[in-house]
Design a protein around this nucleic acid. Structure first.
Length: 752
DNA sequence: AAATGTGGAATTTTT
DNA sequence: TTCCACATTT
């Protein structure tokens, strides 16, 4: 088909876009135009009449990715995106559950718990059932539940190997009962419930299988076991699953992502007539050659890859710069210097990213940037819909929609303060427990006397008044009304630091407005326009976005499923600081990968995890491939961590980049920062400058922070010392052998 | 109900 | 060290 749509695609992209109707695995390297291929594929299917919008389902992991796909798609095709299902796994599951809430055994207006809400519910359960939170930390149970659901297991299906696990299963059952009673579902539940719905209802399954001839999956390497099984259920015998992913960028195993899905795809989605096609997109349009060569060489150290080598015709570009700093402070100072220079040369600050393995590392960097007056923005932290005041307002909204939601009830029953104290609530909870009811039901039943009872009655009346006064209002006005009537507005007005919170509440009203305005663009198509016998009559599922049946519920689902941005303000161009995880999918002119030290990156916790370092290496691969033009790798020989100095050796990931690609920037003779040991006693050696020829001193003199090699224990760093002369001993932190004290007289140490 | 104190933990986190 | 959750005070 001749079409401008296909212009400028490279041969592999073109092949992928125009594959015949069969399942395919597209191995799309970083910067290889993956989103373009996905969206062009859809546009091509529509344009050639091979698919109707109704027949397309595209699933992503983030709302951002879903939005981007939708936006780009609308620009590519004259056809309406209405009718397509494009969204996140959770969003699509939510949508399906709303449409089939009866078969899914859920209340029509079920509410979605985010991770915070879920933990709160668990803690509440602990109180009412007197569960020992020492033996069973709430977070452990939260993890246990998520894990079980991910494995597709209800409490009765979980095998308990010991008493401890038996208790956990028991609590899992209690948790489930509470969720069911209150009409709430957590994130994992959305998936599992949707999976079970498809699994247990042949009619519904048949309906969706018949409908979705094309299922497209973004970031396929990040799918979990359950998501994979969900896809298999959804994909009918004739469906074409177009899975796009990069096994080398799988960095969410700790959250359940299962790279093995990529290996199994070929087997599981092939039919005798239609084998799975595999296409590799290896041409990179982002980075210069040296950067790609570094990434390729690094990732080649991983086993069990599908195999892929990025290339570019953009030329080699600059060498990868490496800097070894004596301390974390020096590392930060170096970065500030370089950044200043780059910005002075005219590079936009927002085109520079500082990446780190763990968020705690941002502090030192921030401090230095602040002192230097360089504007920066840190990603991470509380998102908009997670802020306390926003959660409060949402809790009122939730109560209006679904008053049996105990979590929402407890959050605002005494906020703003209205004299309903802990004692009253304990009594109420006891009443609810013995009646097997929710708090709302218990409160309405009365049974609490005196002033406390009256206050509680007042609260019940307030919620009912809220419901009555907002029923006929547009969503944003309803939100505004609730903020006023609940007393929150007055409360924050009176509070000295309440201004920010008030502004956030105003922002919430604004968000509701935007949601309603843009919602219909997203997914307001009727859920089931092709009626199928076995599918029961549907509620008019034409709410905006998440496909809920009324705007309020849809908005609440939206708030839970899309926590919003970390910060509202964008403002002036600023340097970007973020974890490597957060950088995935982004790109910058210049990238600093900081803290490249053994124990930090790769993180020490990965050492005792199966294939842990491999995942760290993929993380490093992601970090490197964020850079378009310039890449800096930095590390510190000593670093403040948990209140004390740590001496780390340079990350193996630096060693894994061919030295020919590297340009060392560390001064040849950089003295280690004075440490609390008499330097004269120990003599002073130039800091090791890895990558350059090492001097082998005849009579080595040792200092703290120095890298050494031991015949038996391998490489390590001297972290402490004591004694002198023949009594002298040093403490060495070995990469593999751990921390040891060694007598200098006997240990055969070499400088490393 | 705010304010202050204490103990324990301190990767990563698309939903 | 620093942050957070929780408990105790005022």
């Amino acid at each position: 088909m001749a079409s401008p749509l296909l212009d400028n695609l490279n041969p592999e992209q073109l092949a992928a876009v125009t594959l015949p109707q069969a399942s395919a695995l597209i191995l799309a390297g970083a910067g290889s135009g993956k989103t373009r291929v996905l969206t062009t594929r859809i546009a091509w299917l529509l344009g050639t009449g091979q698919a109707r919008p109704m027949g397309i389902l595209a699933v992503t992991f983030t709302n951002k990715a879903a939005r981007e796909m939708l936006t780009r798609l609308s620009a590519m095709t004259p056809q309406s995106t209405r009718g397509m299902w494009i969204g996140t796994f959770h969003g699509l599951c939510n949508r399906m559950l709303r449409a089939h809430y009866r078969d899914a055994n859920l209340p029509q207006l079920f509410q979605i718990l985010d991770t915070q809400d879920q933990l709160a519910l668990i803690k509440r359960l602990y109180r009412t059932h007197g569960i020992d939170d020492e033996k069973f930390p709430p977070r452990d149970l939260q993890w246990f539940i998520a894990d079980a659901k991910e494995a597709g297991k209800r409490p009765n299906a979980v095998e308990a190997g010991n008493d401890h696990e038996r208790r956990l299963v028991e609590y899992y059952a209690l948790y489930e009962a509470a969720c069911q009673r209150e009409g709430v579902v957590d994130f994992a539940e959305l998936l599992l419930r949707s999976f079970e719905l498809l699994s247990n209802h042949a009619g519904i399954r048949g309906h969706y299988q018949a409908r979705f001839a094309h299922i497209l999956v973004d970031e396929f390497q990040d799918t979990s076991e359950l998501q994979y099984r969900w896809l298999r259920l959804l994909a009918g015998p004739d469906a074409a699953v177009f899975a796009v992913g990069d096994d080398d960028q799988s960095i969410y195993a700790f959250r359940g992502a299962n790279v093995a899905n990529m290996q199994h795809f070929e087997r599981d989605f092939a039919t005798p007539e239609r084998p799975v096609r595999l296409i590799k997109l290896e041409q990179n349009y982002r980075s210069h050659g040296n950067i790609l060569d570094a990434a390729n060489a690094l990732i080649a150290n991983n086993q069990a890859r599908l195999g892929k080598n990025l290339w570019t015709d953009a030329g080699k570009g600059d060498a990868v710069r490496v800097f070894s700093a004596p301390s974390d402070l020096d590392e930060a100072a170096f970065i500030v210097d370089v950044v200043r220079g780059l910005v002075d040369e005219g590079l936009a600050a927002s085109e520079i990213a500082l990446l780190y393995r763990s968020n705690a590392q941002s502090r030192v960097l921030e401090h230095a940037l602040f002192a230097a007056g360089i504007p920066y923005r840190v990603y991470g932290g509380l998102r908009f819909f997670e802020r306390a005041e926003v959660k409060h307002a949402l809790a009122y909204l939730r109560l209006v929609a679904s008053p049996d939601d105990d979590g929402a009830f407890l959050r605002v029953v005494n906020f703003p303060p209205r004299g309903i104290g802990a004692r009253t609530l304990e009594q109420l909870q006891e009443n609810a427990r013995s009646a097997g009811s929710t708090l709302w039901q218990a409160a309405r039943a009365g049974g609490i006397t005196g002033r406390a009872g009256a206050s509680l009655g007042g609260f019940v009346q307030l919620v009912e008044a809220l419901r009555a006064s907002t029923a006929a209002l547009p969503l944003s006005e309803a939100v505004a009304t609730i903020i006023e009537m609940s007393g929150m507005a007055a409360h924050f007005k009176a509070e000295k630091d309440g201004q920010d919170r008030l502004e956030n509440l105003e922002e919430l009203v604004h968000a509701a407005e935007t949601f309603v305005r843009e919602g219909d663009l997203a997914t307001d198509a009727p859920m089931l326009s092709t009626r199928v016998e076995a599918v029961p009559a549907e509620p008019p599922a034409d709410g905006p976005d998440e496909g809920a049946s009324d705007p309020l519920t849809a908005f609440l689902a939206h708030a839970a499923l899309e926590a919003g941005d970390t910060q509202a303000e964008e403002g002036r161009p600023a340097l970007q600081l973020m974890s490597v995880h957060a950088a995935k999918g982004l790109e910058f002119h210049t990238v600093f990968v900081t803290g490249l030290e053994e124990g930090l990156f790769p993180h020490e916790n990965s050492f005792n995890v199966d294939a842990g370092v491999d995942e760290e290496r993929r993380l490093m691969y992601v970090a490197i491939t964020r850079a378009r033009r310039r890449l800096y790798l930095t590390y510190a020989q000593s670093r403040m961590l948990h209140g004390q100095s740590r001496y780390n050796i340079q990350s193996r990931f630096i060693d894994e980049v061919p030295s020919g690609l590297l340009q060392w920037l560390s001064p040849q003779r950089m003295r280690a920062r004075a440490i609390d040991v008499d330097a004269a006693e120990w003599g002073a050696l130039p800091a090791p400058t890895p990558g350059s020829p090492k001097p082998t001193p005849q009579a080595p003199q040792w200092r703290i922070g120095q890298s050494v090699r031991h015949a038996k224990f391998g490489v390590g760093v001297i972290i402490d010392a004591e004694g002198r002369g023949s009594d002298a001993r040093v403490q060495v932190n070995f990469r593999d052998a751990g921390v040891k004290w060694l007598a200098l007289e006997y240990a055969k140490l070499e400088a490393a």
